[in-house]
Simulated scan of single mutants.
Amino acid sequence: MDYSGSCAEELEIPLFDLSTIMKATNNFSIDRKIGEGGFGPVYKGILEGLEIAVKRLSRTSTQGENEFMNEVVYIAKLQHRNLVKILGCCIEGEEKMLIYEYLPNGSLDSFIFDETQTKVLDWPKRFYIINGIARGLMYLHQDSQLRIIHRDLKANNILLDKDMNPKISDFGLAKICEEDDVGAMTNRVVGTHGYLSPEYALYGKYSVKSDVFSFGILMLEIVSGKSNRKSCHPDYNLNLLGHAWNLYKEGRSTELLDECLSDSCSTHEVVRSIGVGLLCVQQCPEDRPNMSSAVLMLNTEGVLPLAKQPGFYIEGNAPSSGAFSSSQYAESTVTETPITILTAR
């Protein structure tokens, strides 16, 4: 499949020669490798004096050519300070690569889930990051020319620049919003367990409200420094969502806060962030706010609506992987790789 013309002409982004990228990454030297994902390895490079990140599509990647072009098409048309910026692509022979701005502080998960690094992010920085992600997602849902559902919002898809500005990345699984926001159905559920909304994980129905659910989970993770995919409480087998809900019901939400933040936090902002986070993870999509409402609620003084019991609230023996279970739903398995929902023909 030859994309070489389409990138330069239709997508209006620079098309780089393979030789240029090889030189920039020192022939994809192992010491230039800075990460690995479902797409393939990521390398740091220097191109015309500018630091770049190169995502190289692996031949064994679960994210194939369609996801590659998906990312090129969408990111090329999106411009916002809280979205990663694409600089171009390289398509030559069997090689397919995406070239991005290099973000030196890496991904958010490497800070909030690491016992040492988590101390780098005090509360003002975390609240700033929460707001940046919220504004980036609001742009995707309603302000960009394409109106995008990301479908894989999670801590390691948030990159941080030198000033700790958050940038939403990885648009390989993104879809264009329907105008009426009703959403769409798929029998190929993609994403990461712990972040998927109930209606999407179980029935393949996605909409902007699926992203809102993921954002709510992410917000609770940023506040707590804990992952929703692991058992969160030593005395009760609760995931983060279940623990946050129990504390909220008992009027003890501030106990969810990462212990290292006690000296730097604004109690009002913490309680408000947890409240908005729980509103974003409501069971029914209709009960979740849209992102413009979430941004408004985070930054105003008004009384928040009361949250109801969230979706995928887990108590009992929550497995360490963070997979969810509930007797009221059909059996479903969520993994790191795309999930296929089998339907009778």
Rank of each mutant, 00 (worst) to 15 (best):
R288A: 13
A307C: 09
Y248K: 08
L304Q: 07
G311I: 13
L240G: 03
Q309F: 00
N237H: 14
N228S: 09
C280E: 04
L296C: 05
L218G: 04
S197K: 03
E301M: 08
S210A: 02
S214F: 00
S266H: 10
G302H: 11
M219E: 02
L196W: 03
Y248M: 10
N237F: 10
D258H: 09
P198Q: 05
C260S: 15
L257C: 15
C232D: 15
V212G: 01
L306K: 14
G225F: 04
M219P: 05
D181K: 14
G225V: 00
P198R: 02
E250P: 03
L261S: 09
L240S: 07
L220T: 07
K205I: 10
K249L: 12
M185S: 11
Y236E: 14
G242D: 13
H243S: 07
E250T: 05
P198T: 02
G194V: 14
H233I: 03
E301W: 08
L238D: 00
N317R: 11
E286Q: 15
D263R: 06
L256P: 01
V223Q: 09
C232N: 15
M291C: 13
E255Y: 14
F215C: 12
G251Q: 11
C260F: 08
C265V: 15
S253M: 11
K230R: 06
Q309K: 15
A201H: 04
W245D: 05
P305I: 11
V271G: 00
D180W: 01
R272D: 04
T300H: 05
T300Q: 11
Y206G: 01
V276L: 09
E301G: 00
A201F: 06
M297S: 09
Y236P: 02
F213S: 10
L296R: 12
E269G: 07
W245T: 02
K209R: 15
H193E: 00
A201W: 03
Y195N: 13
G251L: 12
E250C: 02
G277C: 06
E179L: 08
N299F: 04
Q309D: 05
L306G: 09
S273F: 00
S253G: 12
L306D: 13
V281F: 04
A318K: 07
L256G: 10
K308P: 03
E255S: 12
M291N: 08
E250H: 05
S227C: 07
P234H: 13
F213E: 12
E250I: 10
Y248R: 14
S273T: 09
R288I: 08
P234C: 11
T186G: 05
Q283S: 10
G277M: 06
H233F: 14
Y313H: 13
S214M: 09
V223H: 04
L241P: 07
T300G: 02
